[in-house]
Design a protein around this nucleic acid. Structure first.
Lengths: 157, 157
DNA sequence: GCATATATTTCATTTTTTGAACTATTCAAT
DNA sequence: ATTGAATAGTTCAAAAAATGAAATATATGC
């Protein structure tokens, strides 16, 4: 859905235009994030996991969220744990499961990363404050919808 | 940037909220697209290339657009060519370069895919028509900005 | 208790991506 | 024209990432 050609956005349905924008922005952000992650010696997956861990989460939940398999999550968590950014804590509700919890150092890195991400969004999107608010409003709606409707398919693996 | 927790979107800057929505939507769409692509015996990269080829494009341009290396593009183009979805044509302006051009069959598959993608967006986003239009308006602005400002970094490889 | 289901791990295999060396062509400067 | 440096794409071997099956430990329902 990424795109097609700079000038062919004419005559397309709003849905397609919306997706083209989302893809362009996503890829631009990924490009910037990957550079930042690289500076911090983190892989793409590792940065994403760090961001997801604003709250402690079970590995299985992360696997769904990140559209990947449990075994991939194990590897990513191993790397972040080894780097001292997170710890595994047994979930008191289910002793088969781990809760991944950021260490102080991990939370720090996450915080720094998120702050820079805000700036990257501003530069990448080029939106003014008003537009950014409006975009955020719709964006939140979309996210809520995805979270609400997305779980079933997310569990498919 | 994906997210954090369903209810922690409070107190975050609009930029962060916007990004969280974009990531949630992107991942949801990728999940659906990957399923569709699988049905058509195409990989994720192959579908993306197909979508990008609304107009003939040089392989180098695709490499920038798709944030990957020329050698990856070669492999993806080989697969699509073998499947009969595209052809390499020498760029008359530069005989070192190929233009990748969809065959009729390739254009067909692309068309079908894009049509289904519209429906997937509606389902994933949950926006009504008015909201979709507004989101598309801002989305197009963002895309224009990314295309305008994105080229330099895109060429870095 | 027992059978079955779930959360995570392990590790070998497969898939994907990378990067360096190579061919062909262009471009700029002589 | 000729040369030398840069560019577009290819090849292929090596590295990295994702996958899936089998194993461990715990939970859940009967």
């Amino acid at each position: 859905m990424a795109d097609d050609d700079s000038y062919s956005a004419e005559g397309l349905s709003p849905e397609i235009i919306a997706m083209m924008g989302v893809y362009a922005l996503y890829w631009k952000l990924e490009e910037s994030f990957e550079a930042k992650a690289g500076q911090m010696d983190l892989s793409r997956q590792e940065i994403h996991m760090l961001v997801k861990l604003g709250q402690p989460k079970r590995m299985g939940v992360l696997a769904c969220d990140m559209l990947t398999l449990p075994s991939t999550i194990t590897a990513t968590a191993d790397a972040l744990e080894k780097a001292g950014y997170l710890q595994r804590q047994r979930d008191p509700d289910d002793r088969r499961a781990w809760l991944l919890v950021l260490t102080e150092r991990g939370a720090d890195v996450r915080q720094r990363f998120m702050a820079e991400a805000g700036e990257l969004f501003r530069r990448a999107s080029g939106l003014n404050d008003h537009e950014t608010h409006e975009f955020a409003r719709l964006s939140r709606k979309i996210r809520d919808n995805v979270l609400k409707t997305g779980i079933p398919e997310g569990l498919k693996k």
